[in-house]
Design a binder for these strands. Structure first.
Lengths: 246, 246
DNA sequence: ACGTATTTGTTCGTATGTATC
DNA sequence: GGATACATACGAACAAATACG
């Protein structure tokens, strides 16, 4: 099978041309002739190969996209959909552990750190007054080298004043908190929504601005039950599935 | 304060005009002069009111949209963002109860029902072989008259053969299942992702196709622990926040 | 920073086959 | 058979996003 070769379709079998094209491409994906992430030939090339109009190819691609088999990006091309990372959210959720459970190689790096005055949305859940100091750690998480999530982690500065230095030494939030005297932390609640990404998030996540991000707002408590962290993660929705099991 | 009146801005305060406009509009929202769902004046009217170019107004609106304060809809106008419905997902999740907890009036109606051959994505979790019969109930859920979610509920036909008739009599999935001998059901797991909506979903949810839907795939078990339902809900992400508390 | 080529997205219009009443 | 509605297929032109030198 060659991309330039013609592939003949039955015009009288009672099956629409676009259905036949849809099935042919799907079989090529199932048969590993097209791997996850691969770019399909252009619509023009496919139209030529199947001997049909570009519209007909587009209808087949739209059907495949609707079912989540491929993803179409304006100006770039059509790509075989990657398997999403199943991100399990439990009482104790740690990024690297979760990714490793999926047989993927986790990686996480700090992209920003600062000490700020708490905005109401952050101060409230953390039990602080508006304007009290919070420490922000912004991390980019990757799985197998592909960016998965950008997370802004906020901590009450009074509880962990030296957190930024600790993070630089430990390269891990869990271990940095330990160094600051917080032995453990657990998830109190998670709020999930979705929106289109900001320009920076889209760039960092290596995704177009036209596709949604999942936003998970997470409140974590220390062993005594006091709020210790609020994290707001933005994840490329196409690459992630959040899994909740009670 | 009147919409036609001029509002003067400081051109030498070291704060960009668009920032001042952004703040003025935000204060009007905070001060209840603009309520959730209200339409703002047109960009032209705002430009006149503030005595600036329309581009300057647009920059302010873009900043407000970025932060989720307003939403801009091409061809319709700019609207104050409504408060999202916090949809709590627990072990026993029932649509109307959950909405009522938010002091909103729930409403749900059947938009489609059918008996189908199970696709792999549905058959697997339900423990059926591919091609076995499943019953589909598709419901549109509203809160205070605003469409919130479209949900496709799949049931093994062998377990509840008369479910469609039961639903028509009861107008509720919980009660229809009861009538079919399933006294209760609980959530095993929920998988959450997001994408852009299909044309039909966008129409039913009364939203543009360019804005994301949250997709929650839910597996429910009967009291004996056997899979009884898989539901795939699509929710207008702007109007819903999923809340998970362990 | 800018223009150009590539690729997908949208909207016209037209023609044809198929199912239904 | 005739009328009608709907999905299918093709063609052309232009818009919009992207990649690249």
């Amino acid at each position: 099978m060659n991309a330039t070769e013609q592939t003949t379709l039955s015009r009288r079998g009672g099956v629409a041309l676009w259905r036949q094209i849809e099935q042919t491409i799907e079989e090529e994906i199932a048969g590993d002739r097209l791997a996850p992430g691969d770019r399909l030939p252009t619509e023009h090339a496919l139209a030529e190969r199947f001997g049909v109009n570009r519209h007909t190819v587009r209808q087949a691609l739209a059907a495949l996209e609707e079912r989540g088999v491929v993803r179409v990006e304006q100006g770039r091309g059509t790509f075989v959909h990657d398997d999403p990372v199943a991100y399990a959210v439990r009482k104790r959720t740690r990024f690297s552990e979760t990714i490793r459970l999926q047989n993927r190689e986790p990686n996480s790096r700090l992209v920003r750190s600062a000490t700020l005055a708490a905005e109401p949305a952050v101060a409230g859940p953390l039990g602080l007054k508006r304007g009290e100091s919070v420490i922000l750690l912004e991390t980019l998480g990757e799985a197998d080298g592909r960016p998965i999530s950008i997370a802004s982690h906020y901590f009450p500065a009074c509880r962990v004043p030296d957190l930024i230095a600790a993070y630089r030494a430990e390269e891990s939030i869990t271990r940095a908190l330990m160094r600051c005297g917080i032995a453990d932390y657990t998830r109190k609640s998670t709020r999930v929504t979705a929106r289109l990404p900001s320009a920076e998030d889209a760039r960092a996540l290596h995704m177009p601005r036209s596709r949604p991000v999942l936003v998970a707002e997470n409140l974590n408590l220390d062993p005594e039950g006091r709020p210790i962290e609020i994290s707001i993660s933005r994840m490329a929705a196409e690459r992630v599935q959040l899994v909740f099991e009670p």
